[in-house]
Computed example of a mutant assay.
Amino acid sequence: MRERRVGRPAGPRDSSAPVEGTFATSTGQAAWVPEHDGSWTLYVNGVPSSPVRVGDPAALDFEYLQWMADVIRLVLPPTAEGPLRAVHLGGGACALPRHLATVRRAEGQQLRQVVVELDAELATRVREWVDLPRSPELRIQTGDARGGLAARRDASADLVVRDVFSGDSTPRHVSTREFLAEVDRVLAHGGLYVANAVDRTSPVGLKAEVATLRAVFGHAAAAIEPGVLRGRRHGNAVLLGSRSPLPVAALTRVLGAGAAPARLLHGEALEAYAAGAPVLADPLPAVPTT
């Protein structure tokens, strides 16, 4: 789910384009909408979810996806020593997994990606209409994001991406300290957690999400558009967490120089941003009465 998008020149097209119109899914309905520049946007239950450029899988037209791609490239640079193992919580049209598969393949690195998507019918339609990589480069599993994460082995992923929305809001159960502890368990040493959050629609508050991130990860940061940070507009924020130090100088430079610049908060600035916000926790289990 995104607030705004950044256009790019149209890429090549082929016969595997999505079919314009609305279709029923397991959780409601979705629609493929063609854009004026030749790209497509997938809407899920009325909310823009994923950009697609047919024949140009490396393109990312949503600004927060561009930020995520830059962060992943800088924190987890390509290597020939082994595949990049990624778990994506939330699928949509799999724009980021599709991008990663394309660029890493071109750079000589293999990928092993798993996408956990709640909506089974949506996953089927996306496989039919989008030129996605096949297994083992990209596998789509249907189920709840947190349940899919719990099924992963310890230290089995280099990257965990959270891009989960119910309507236009992030569900609370993928925002809590206990959820992030599961992410930390699944990440290997040096692994990276990246999450998409929208300040306007966060039911718990973006500052509470940041406070919870800082409570679990020793190294945390947030990429936020300056206008959003100053309260002048609403938009996406990309949250980063790791056990290992983040390349703060490189991240600050690259994120601040893109077509949609973002400011990177870290250290004391991130602490000040989240000051006074609560750390989110799972509800306590009900106590049986006698």
Rank of each mutant, 00 (worst) to 15 (best):
P226V: 04
S50A: 11
E271S: 09
L280N: 04
A31P: 05
G7I: 10
A260L: 06
D119N: 15
A120S: 11
A24I: 03
S39A: 12
A106R: 02
P97F: 12
R104Q: 06
Q29K: 13
P57G: 02
M1D: 02
E107F: 13
L122T: 07
C94H: 08
V103A: 03
H266E: 09
S16V: 09
T124R: 13
L206I: 06
E121W: 15
L74Y: 09
E271F: 08
A93V: 03
N196R: 04
L187N: 11
P245S: 12
T170R: 03
V287L: 15
V254D: 09
E128Y: 07
D37Q: 13
T212R: 01
V174K: 07
A59W: 00
V204K: 12
D37G: 09
S156H: 05
P247M: 14
P288W: 15
T22P: 01
A58Y: 03
G46V: 03
R253S: 13
G143Y: 11
A24V: 04
A120N: 08
A197P: 00
L284W: 14
W129Q: 13
A211S: 02
R146H: 03
F217P: 00
Q141T: 15
V54Y: 00
D184V: 07
V47C: 08
G38E: 05
R125D: 07
V198S: 07
D282Q: 12
Q141D: 14
A269W: 02
A222R: 03
V71Y: 09
T289M: 15
D168C: 02
T41D: 10
L42K: 03
L264W: 07
R232F: 12
R2H: 14
V115I: 11
R98A: 00
A93C: 08
A101M: 00
L84M: 13
L265P: 00
N196P: 03
V114G: 04
A30C: 10
L111M: 12
E178P: 04
E128H: 12
R200N: 04
V160A: 09
L74E: 14
A59Y: 01
S175D: 07
V6K: 12
N236T: 07
D184L: 14
A262V: 05
V47R: 10
T289Q: 15
P34D: 06
G82D: 12
A150W: 12
A222C: 07
D184F: 13
G148W: 04
P247A: 13
R105E: 06
A101W: 00
T170V: 14
E63H: 10
A211F: 00
T290G: 13
S202M: 12
V164S: 07
E137V: 05
P12R: 11
R53S: 09
D119C: 13
G205C: 02
L246S: 08
A222H: 01
L229E: 04
A145Y: 00
L74K: 10
P288A: 10
L240M: 09
V52C: 09
R232G: 08
G55D: 00
G191F: 11
G227S: 10
T289F: 15
P97T: 02
V71P: 09
A249P: 02
G11I: 02
L100Q: 04
G82F: 13
A274W: 00
P133G: 03
Y273P: 03
G108I: 04
R153E: 13
L96S: 05
R85Y: 10
A250H: 15
V183P: 00
D168N: 10
E35Y: 03
R230M: 11
Y64W: 04
R162L: 08
L42F: 07
E268M: 09
P245F: 13
V228M: 01
